[in-house]
Amino acid sequence: MTPPAPDTAPILIVDDMEENLVALEAVLSSLTSTVVRARSGEEALKAMLREEFAVVLIDVLMPGMNGFETAANIKGLDQTKDVPIILLTGASVDPNYAYRGYTVGAADFLIKPFDPWLLRTKVNVFLDLYRKNHQLASQADQLKRLLTGPTPMESPATPAEPHGPAHAPHAPEDAPAPAPAPPVGDEALSDIASRLVQIELLLRDARDIESAGLADRIAALEQSVERLMAGREA
């Protein structure tokens, strides 16, 4: 499964009726440049294994694999279990449908006919979260590269004097040996690495927590690492 560029934030819409797909695409096209259609649950699963989606909208009443079964299968796969699902159904439905939707892992449940503004608002929440997660993951990767990058090269040895070691200066015999230079930035580097681990743990659960402010924390860490690396190179 190839992740797309975060600015595209693709949406998958699943319905067995063409007119419903056309209506959904018209409502959602203003939010993203990529809206992918699927005419069945099986087709939706195949699409999700090929491509990463920010959110999936699934009609409940479909022949073959219905919306509940499709959602359960999506949540049962490691590659797709974290993708949020919105289930859609008609007004004259079983009142327990909403409960069934949440038990199979759906994030939201809407009854047709729905307000286009309400649908766009709900979907846009997941699109924004998808973009933020990609931004956080990208910044975490940058920090990893800084933390695990090559160490600065040591200064080249002073070339020998052309007339041999007899002319090389030497310290008095009673002069104390110079103390080895302490490692530069080790404590700060350890602290940054520890905080990076904490952020990675937050990233794993970013869909279930308030992610605002994490990007700023990572950016501050990145600046600290850059200053540290600059000090080690000096």
Score class of each variant (00 low, 15 high):
residue 29 S to I: 15
residue 215 A to Q: 13
residue 151 T to W: 09
residue 125 V to G: 02
residue 145 R to A: 12
residue 85 I to F: 08
residue 127 L to Y: 05
residue 43 E to H: 01
residue 97 Y to V: 02
residue 182 P to N: 05
residue 108 D to G: 01
residue 48 M to A: 02
residue 229 M to E: 15
residue 25 E to A: 12
residue 59 D to E: 03
residue 186 D to Q: 10
residue 36 V to G: 15
residue 116 P to E: 13
residue 32 T to N: 09
residue 222 E to C: 04
residue 67 G to A: 02
residue 50 R to M: 15
residue 155 S to L: 04
residue 87 L to W: 02
residue 25 E to R: 13
residue 119 L to K: 10
residue 234 A to D: 06
residue 76 G to R: 14
residue 56 V to E: 00
residue 180 P to M: 14
residue 16 D to M: 09
residue 221 L to T: 07
residue 165 P to I: 07
residue 166 A to D: 13
residue 14 V to A: 02
residue 234 A to P: 00
residue 97 Y to P: 04
residue 24 L to M: 15
residue 22 V to R: 15
residue 215 A to T: 14
residue 113 P to K: 07
residue 200 E to K: 14
residue 202 L to P: 05
residue 73 N to I: 01
residue 143 L to D: 07
residue 215 A to W: 10
residue 118 L to C: 12
residue 99 Y to F: 05
residue 119 L to N: 06
residue 213 G to P: 08
residue 18 E to Q: 11
residue 96 N to Y: 07
residue 95 P to C: 01
residue 15 D to I: 01
residue 144 K to L: 06
residue 66 N to M: 10
residue 198 Q to A: 10
residue 101 G to F: 00
residue 153 M to F: 05
residue 176 P to W: 04
residue 63 P to W: 13
residue 136 L to I: 09
residue 153 M to R: 00
residue 189 L to K: 10
residue 119 L to V: 08
residue 64 G to I: 09
residue 23 A to I: 08
residue 38 A to Y: 00
residue 141 D to R: 14
residue 171 A to I: 07
residue 121 T to V: 06
residue 194 S to P: 00
residue 165 P to D: 01
residue 138 S to R: 01
residue 14 V to W: 02
residue 9 A to W: 05
residue 146 L to H: 04
residue 91 A to R: 14
residue 42 E to C: 13
residue 18 E to R: 02
residue 131 R to F: 08
residue 28 L to D: 04
residue 81 K to H: 15
residue 151 T to G: 03
residue 191 D to S: 13
residue 137 A to K: 14
residue 36 V to D: 15
residue 83 V to G: 00
residue 82 D to R: 05
residue 28 L to T: 00
residue 139 Q to G: 09
residue 32 T to F: 04
residue 50 R to V: 10
residue 16 D to W: 04
residue 51 E to K: 09
residue 122 K to A: 12
residue 161 E to L: 14
residue 79 Q to C: 02
residue 52 E to K: 00
residue 98 A to C: 11
residue 190 S to H: 11
residue 73 N to F: 08
residue 52 E to Y: 10
residue 112 K to S: 07
residue 38 A to E: 01
residue 5 A to N: 05
residue 186 D to H: 03
residue 162 P to R: 05
residue 49 L to K: 03
residue 182 P to T: 01
residue 34 T to D: 15
residue 12 L to P: 11
residue 177 A to E: 02
residue 37 R to Y: 08
residue 135 Q to I: 12
residue 110 L to A: 00
residue 83 V to L: 09
residue 119 L to W: 01
residue 196 L to S: 04
residue 143 L to G: 07
residue 129 L to I: 03
residue 134 H to I: 08
residue 96 N to G: 07
residue 165 P to N: 04
residue 101 G to W: 08
residue 70 T to P: 06
residue 128 D to W: 10
residue 72 A to V: 04
residue 134 H to K: 06
residue 88 L to R: 06
residue 14 V to Y: 03
residue 231 G to C: 13
residue 33 S to Y: 04
residue 204 R to H: 11
residue 189 L to M: 08
residue 229 M to I: 15
residue 184 V to F: 02
residue 35 V to K: 07
residue 27 V to W: 05
residue 106 A to W: 08
residue 184 V to C: 09
residue 137 A to E: 14
residue 57 L to E: 12
residue 138 S to A: 08
residue 101 G to N: 02
residue 36 V to F: 14
residue 156 P to V: 13
residue 45 L to Q: 06
residue 30 S to W: 12
residue 133 N to D: 06
residue 89 T to L: 03
